[in-house]
Write a protein that binds this DNA or RNA. Structure first.
Lengths: 293, 293
DNA sequence: CACGTCCATGCCGCCAGGTTATAGAAGCAG
DNA sequence: CTGCTTCTATAACCTGGCGGCATGGACGTG
């Protein structure tokens, strides 16, 4: 009988939540997907795990037994991944955009000098996961934009802040000004991240700075190229200052904005002490690099 | 990071075997499939697990670390499945053909009387797995035809024997005789099981009774309906006497055969003592039923 | 009686994982 | 040196599983 960890995570969520609908929302999948998965799990085991009712999914005795073992299974898997990485001396580092990592190659080079036996493996993630792979255990640490959903579950060290500006279509009237007031942008259609990113999405729509003015969402994207295209197509989007250096598009311009808080960049890692020494050294390398620039 | 148990089993096989080609043969999958899977595993972990060379795949240090943990992971998973079945009082029973199970409903009914709290879940398997799901952990016990590949890994109790006869096309010359000598069949094209079933396939081709005459394989099938069609199409196939009762086809006849050993039917279960009491009772029910008929 | 809130089902599109065929590299025998 | 063998890697293709959307059905509630 084959099963994968995703199915176990699904099951754990449904068991805790008590409803498919609720678990689906938490896992960012559709409710029918969970219906099917839970049924498949029951079929494979040959055991009814849930008692269905209009009010939700209640665990049966067998379901409780199974549920009591799932965390250990997932934990052991995670443990195995960590241990393997430790032996291989590989540090998986997630990031969302080049700007957040700052001078990536220099930081890595600095780190290599301090920890010649370790290797850093960089992984870029799109905006469907603001934790840059940390939430799914795909990386050991991640350079993230704060705040991000689920942040409380991790150890976060703030690295630096960076002003936020705006990307505008080149022929937009405001493109002529050197600096834009945020309130001038409030009625523009914004490019937003997927709704599964919650507070993170709101932060990049500057929900806090709107004084109650409703958001107009002009497009939803999760990748830089789509993002730029959407702006070229007439939307606007807040962006960190570094975006002006790392991304460019002929029909898109970057302008400073007054009236929005800066973007905070941090290094996040799991609460469990994984790769302690190496991570410490990485942090050192980053801060040394920052203090120099 | 999501992974499934199949991938872990693949990895374990490659690690033990030392070559993809060898492991592929053992797992009955193609070698390119393993190439891709092992690479994916390495990519997901961000770690080189194997040192490749023309002579095979050697584990790296990290690979050894990972390999040392895989058996425990698979074991814990198996354990969880068992425990859940124990609480739910479900006994998963595999079988290949109705004849082997004998009078299924009666045995089940008898079992229910003795163990009213337990439920038997029957699962039929095709001939691609002569262990009827036991090898893959899909069932707790299985009614099998002996001998079957991998039999040594299980506890097997022989239940009864049954004469083997032959299925012939209705218009085959030998169909006129009441009884056929096996040597008259030696040059006929036989229907065979897939080559992955090894000795089991040979047994149903009566390899031992051929005195060295080579086998002519006329068709390869893994399911009863294809099997009958192949016979209707001009092949012949050995079959247990009960097949005459449970399977029928207008253009196929069953005839007794002299000169082949009978088929032995047994109950097989895992070496680890799972569902001890219930299995004991099931065995009782079967033997009671057998002694009565 | 209409509405909200669950879970279940049907249909569709996509991708992971499998297969076969073939290429490439390297040892080994003659 | 050449041809044979034995590995792994790559390419092209096919299929089934999984997820998404839309909808249905059951049932409690205002």
């Amino acid at each position: 009988m084959d099963v994968d960890t995703r199915l176990l995570r699904y099951f754990a969520a449904v068991a805790e939540e008590g409803t498919l609908t609720g678990a689906a929302a938490r896992l960012f999948v559709s409710q029918p997907a969970l219906t099917k998965q839970m049924r498949r799990l029951e079929d494979d085991l040959g055991v009814r795990l849930f008692a269905r009712s209009r009010s939700g999914m209640a665990l049966t005795d067998a379901g409780r037994e199974f549920a009591s073992r799932v965390p250990a299974l997932l934990g052991a898997w995670d443990e195995a991944v960590q241990a393997t990485g430790r032996v291989a001396r590989v540090l998986r580092l997630g990031f969302l955009d080049a700007g957040a990592v700052g001078a990536v190659p220099e930081v890595i080079a600095e780190f290599r000098r301090a920890q010649p036996k370790w290797r850093v493996e960089l992984r870029q993630f799109d905006w469907s996961d603001p934790s840059a792979g940390l939430a799914r255990g795909e990386v050991d640490a991640a350079v993230v934009r704060l705040p991000f959903p689920g942040q409380g579950g991790f150890v976060v060290r703030e690295l630096f802040t960076e002003d936020r500006g705006v990307l505008l279509p080149a022929r937009h009237p405001l493109a002529n000004s050197e600096t834009v007031e945020f309130r001038e942008l409030r009625n523009e259609p914004f490019v937003a991240a997927g709704s599964e990113t919650g507070a993170w999405r709101d932060h990049w729509l500057a929900a806090e700075e709107r004084d109650g003015y409703p958001v107009r969402v002009g497009a939803v994207t999760s990748r830089p190229d789509e993002w730029l295209s959407a702006v070229a197509g007439g939307c606007v989007a807040l962006a960190p200052a570094s975006a002006a250096r790392f991304y460019s598009h002929p029909d898109v311009v970057f302008r400073a904005v007054r009236g929005v808080s800066p973007s905070r960049v941090g290094l996040a890692r799991s609460r469990r002490h994984v790769h302690e020494a190496a991570l410490h050294e990485l942090l050192q390398a980053m801060t040394r690099r920052l203090s120099r620039s």
